[in-house]
Amino acid sequence: MTLDDLRVFVAVCRAGSLSAVARDLDCTQSAVSQHVKRLERETGISLVERHPRGVVPTQAGRLLQAAAADGIAGLDLALRRLSDLVRGDAGSVRVTTGATSVRHFMSEAVVAFRRRFPQASLEFQTETSSRSCFDALASHDLDLAWITIGGTVRGIEQRPVMDLPWVLAVRSDDPLASRSRIEPEDLASIRHIRLPENSTSRAHLDDAFAALGVRVTSDTGVADWDTAILLAELGLGHAVVPALPGWRGPGHRGLRFVPVPALPPLSTGWAVRRWDALAPLARAFADSVVESCARLT
């Protein structure tokens, strides 16, 4: 049993496909299968079930996957810490987040961090949802994930940074644009621009609508908040979105953001594997973002 065997096995369990892992690793499907078979021979038990559309871990496989994933994440983290100790201020910080989060929450912090640590490497990996950010953080050599706070994720620590109130984005000539606030009963008449079903913010919003007894109609869907706001500005519907710092200011004269105070705020912030094991450079960047966000509130 080797570390490579365990890495490949964990990747197979996450992907549910031998061929997908083979493509990612630029090797043959047979080579991937050999890693799994070697583990099965050494453990004496079947670890995956093979189906026409892929593979799923058995009960024994899930036990090994959980233990191996934790061990690999801890080892990768330790190796990164050792590397950063050697490199000092010339180390690296790797962040995973949504496509628009850097502009909304981190632009000032990125500039400040670069001035403070000019030799450091700052890398961003884009994901489409908080769930995929969690998965990337657990399975890749990453330091930080900027996510929508929600639920308990095994092996991940979350720290809220900002609470974002919800607003209704509408064209300035829309009848609702003149309101000082939007009430729950007003939402029943909007043409809702819906967020992706797999997003945490969509789940929060759906739960809030259900708690208020609100049913909205929708004929338009988008992948992110920015696109929803732009479509609202074009008059294609109404977007219920968090009050994003990057959209404040006079740059969009044809757009109005009307508060929806009945909806509970959306919490966003950092996720890491272990705060006490975070590399000094990564902690410095995380703290810089927290300080920057505090000035935006």
Rank of each mutant, 00 (worst) to 15 (best):
G91P: 02
T96Q: 04
T100D: 12
G88E: 04
M106S: 14
D89Y: 07
D89Q: 15
L85K: 08
G88T: 10
S83Q: 09
G98H: 01
M106F: 09
V93S: 08
L77A: 14
R94P: 01
R94Y: 11
G98D: 04
S92Q: 12
G74Y: 11
G98Y: 09
S92W: 13
M106I: 07
S83W: 10
S101Q: 01
V86D: 15
D84A: 00
F105Q: 06
L77V: 07
R81L: 07
A99M: 06
G88R: 03
A90P: 14
R87D: 10
L85I: 01
R87V: 10
T100L: 13
L85G: 01
M106D: 06
D76K: 01
F105W: 10
M106C: 11
L75F: 11
S101E: 02
V86K: 15
G74W: 05
L79W: 05
S83R: 10
L82Y: 07
V102N: 02
H104R: 05
L77H: 06
A78N: 15
V93C: 15
V86A: 10
A90V: 02
L75K: 07
D84Y: 00
M106K: 03
S83V: 14
T100W: 03
L82I: 13
G98Q: 00
G88W: 10
T100A: 10
L79M: 11
S83L: 03
L82F: 14
V102T: 10
D76I: 02
T100V: 07
L85E: 14
T96H: 06
D84L: 01
L79P: 00
A78R: 11
S101F: 13
R94C: 08
S101H: 05
T100Y: 15
A99S: 07
L77E: 07
S101T: 04
L82V: 09
D76P: 07
S92T: 02
L75P: 04
R87W: 04
R80C: 03
S92V: 06
V95E: 05
D76R: 00
G98T: 00
T96Y: 12
D76A: 08
L77S: 12
T97G: 05
S83Y: 10
D89E: 08
R103K: 06
G98M: 00
A90F: 10
L85F: 15
H104T: 15
H104C: 13
L85A: 13
R94D: 05
H104I: 06
R81V: 14
S101I: 12
L77K: 08
L77I: 11
V102W: 06
S83H: 07
M106E: 05
V95C: 00
L85Y: 03
T96P: 03
R87T: 11
A99N: 06
V86G: 14
L82W: 13
A78L: 01
T96I: 01
V93Q: 06
H104G: 15
L85V: 12
S83G: 11
A90I: 00
A78Y: 01
M106A: 13
G88C: 04
V93L: 14
T96V: 01
S92A: 14
T96E: 08
G98I: 00
V102G: 11
T97D: 08
H104L: 11
A90Q: 03
R94W: 06
R81H: 11
R103L: 05
L82P: 03
R81Q: 08
L85T: 12
R80G: 03
A78M: 04
G88P: 14
